[in-house]
Design a protein around this nucleic acid. Structure first.
Lengths: 244, 244
DNA sequence: CGGACCTTTGAAGACATTCAAGGCCTGTGG
DNA sequence: CCACAGGCCTTGAATGTCTTCAAAGGTCCG
């Protein structure tokens, strides 16, 4: 049972990066796994605010997060950022490049972040010869669609408090998936990034956190969150996990 | 190059359904095209309110719209519908089933609608042997992701008027792509469906239409829309086509 | 013709934003 | 080491947008 600190203390080395421990939690024969492992590019970690790729760049690869966290966003006419996703360890980002062969979003590290680069061309070739890899790739892509549609449902049908609660529960669940604490964690993103993502203002998000703390749902200390009453939060959501 | 009128005057027969005229506007050698055409299932059209597939059903196929229109939605805990997408002729829906091998959304015809069913298993096999088909399939999936993220940006960052204007312009552009009038068209969806999709109330959408008409942007007659001042509408959007 | 449903419009109210100010933390430079 | 500047976060009060509530007109279909 690793804690998040564990990840933070070892942000640099990506030498022993293995797909099966981070983005392919699927049954692969060791030979297949080896081939997959072969194509993965390991680079030095990205520091906070550094871009993994920029909107408009040629789509060459998708990325699996080994440690740290990534936000993806696009820019509208005014130069305003619109955050479209937060990605945590074990998750894959970059699929938005599939459509037009260039990335629609910019992906930026929200903290020191190690990623494994998976060159798309090679992944595609591999997937053509190894059905289990192909199947898994399609599933990963499908999950991106599912996540996006879930966010659409959240934005279209929920109040400020519900959106905030939903994000916290989502982060909690995703950390749990990585065998990390689902009740105590550090938010990698600022209040501003949260508000942007949820279609709210910074003030509303801040008030939301304060409110949840007063109500006894959370303990909040800057970016440190402790969820005290998870069922209480879940009850706030009219649509916890169903939609999309 | 057939026009869609062609399709409307012949809504029942799907006998001469050809991929190249409806969902694969890509350069394929005729032999490849033939193979693709072979796997397409043609059924009788769906009548209004009839489901093409339901949330939770096994994912077996994606669907290309030949004529008519489809809305996709999921259901939250309260039984409330949340519309996640509108699909017009030439567009493909059903990719949301990729993630978990069952559909997350329900897809319902908003009017009499002819679709071509593309069995996923067979499409996948074909795509494994014909690179151009594979490439195109990935592009189509990528577009679904792009469309979803665009909607996220719309919902998170725009006012009621902007959302409504954006939807109208989106429909207009997509109709134009099918060589249909981009300035005069009939909305296939109700005000309620629009409001749900845009995260607003019916009243707000109705007021929006009235407002745009008063301002001289539109002529509205029930579901018939005529865009009079397209540049004016575009100007309302801070982020017309950029984001996602 | 009647009823159900959808749409429109008005008025009141609620929720989130905007505007404003102050506190806290961090990093930098004296 | 301390002082200070700049972010980021929080809180309060006023404003505004959108929703809610209410009612009436329109259209479609039996």
């Amino acid at each position: 049972m690793k804690s998040v600190e564990n990840v933070y203390t070892n942000p640099v080395s990506c030498r022993d990066c293995r797909m099966n421990t981070l983005c392919i939690p699927l049954s692969l024969r060791s030979e297949e796994l080896y081939k997959l492992d072969q194509i993965i590019q390991r680079g030095s970690p990205y520091r906070e605010k550094h871009a993994v790729f920029n909107s408009g760049e040629k789509f060459t690869a998708v990325y699996a997060i080994r440690s740290g966290s990534i936000k993806s966003f696009c820019i509208d006419n005014d130069g305003r950022e619109q955050v479209t996703g937060f990605y945590l360890p074990g998750e894959i980002f970059g699929w938005d490049g599939l459509a037009e062969n260039y990335y629609l979003n910019t992906a930026v590290a929200m903290e020191t972040t190690s990623v494994c680069e998976i060159p798309y061309k090679q992944l595609d070739l591999l997937s053509a010869t190894i059905p289990s890899i192909h199947k898994h790739m399609m599933k990963l892509i499908g999950r991106e669609i599912g996540a996006d549609q879930k966010l659409i449902a959240l934005l279209a049908g929920n109040s400020a408090h519900q959106r905030i609660a939903s994000l916290l529960l989502s982060l909690s669940a995703r950390l749990a998936q990585q065998k990390l604490s689902s009740t105590r964690f550090r938010l990698p993103m600022s209040r501003g990034e949260i508000s942007n993502y949820l279609g709210l203002t910074v003030e509303t998000v801040s008030r939301g956190f304060s409110h949840f703390q007063r109500e006894g749902y959370l303990l909040v200390n800057k970016k440190e969150i402790e969820i005290i009453d998870k069922p209480g939060l879940e009850q706030l959501l009219t649509n916890p996990e169903e939609c999309a």
